[in-house]
């Protein structure tokens, strides 16, 4: 009988793999860069663990479905499930990943009630933060903390990555404080996702999932702007993979 289920989240930047036992406890978590050949990477990862059933999510899920004949689920449902695993009462989920951000509203029973995703531009996504961090010369892991040290914010008004990049470059050239610009960049992402959250999930605590949830500055700005609690699990980045694993378990 099956008693270990895996979930794999193949994102644009990273792949996460989580294996849960029969009671839904995570027994393995793995993470790797997506690289140029996501399926080769995925193959290696699933080779390293043991499981009886697997479900794929993330933007590479369809490739995985073909290569490994596995069922799939969208990131939206997977993150919703994962968020519930972290916080069983969660009704609102914000997931910011590499190239997408999503606001999800859940019913009391955890089903997706409504969701919205960013449109095709990168503003308001992890990629945007990454590009801005690079332009400002910060490591992405440090970006949020550095921004938090700023005393005031330099407003970044361009929403589009391309324009924002040149705006930031010209601010640096003007001698603006880098941390203040960094704070401005965070605020611009915050405004984007806050608008989305207000449309989709206008009240109550918000569970923040995905890699960008680790960014303390963004969490703080969001909490301040919305006047709502931003809940976050240290394992937030694995929410999608965990959700997929749990859905695999529940489907068995």
């Amino acid at each position: 009988m099956a008693h270990r289920f895996a979930g794999i989240d193949i994102g644009s930047r990273t792949i996460e793999l989580v294996v849960v036992n029969q009671s839904g406890q995570a027994i393995h978590t793995l993470k790797a860069d997506t690289g140029f050949d996501p399926m080769a990477e995925a193959k290696q990862m699933i080779g390293a663990v043991v499981y009886e059933g697997i479900m794929a999510t993330g933007y590479g899920r369809n490739l995985f479905e073909i290569a490994f004949e596995a069922p799939t689920v969208t990131e939206i449902k997977a993150h919703a499930r994962g968020a519930r695993a972290f916080f069983p009462e969660a009704l609102n989920v914000l997931d910011i990943g590499g190239q997408d951000s999503k606001a999800i509203a859940l019913s009391d029973n955890g089903k997706v009630k409504k969701f919205e995703m960013n449109d095709r531009c990168a503003a308001g996504t992890g990629k945007f933060l990454e590009i801005m961090a690079r332009t400002l010369g910060y490591a992405i892991e440090q970006f949020g903390n550095e921004a938090l040290l700023a005393e005031q914010e330099t407003t970044i008004s361009s929403m589009c990555t391309v324009f924002a990049e040149s705006e930031v470059t010209s601010l640096i050239a003007k001698g603006q404080d880098r941390r203040e610009i960094a704070l401005g960049v965070h605020a611009s992402v915050m405004r984007r996702v806050a608008a989305m959250l207000q449309r989709v999930a206008p009240e109550g605590d918000i569970v923040f999932t995905g890699g960008v949830a680790n960014n303390a500055c963004l969490r703080a700005l969001l909490a301040q702007k919305l006047g709502r609690r931003i809940l976050y699990a240290p394992q937030a980045q694995f929410a999608g993979a965990l959700g997929a694993a749990l859905l695999a378990l529940e489907a068995a």
Binding site: T155, S157, S158, S166, S170
Partner: peptide, 8 residues
């Protein structure tokens, strides 16, 4: 109405 494009 933003200021982002003033330089340009």
């Amino acid at each position: 109405y933003s200021e982002g494009d003033i330089g340009q």
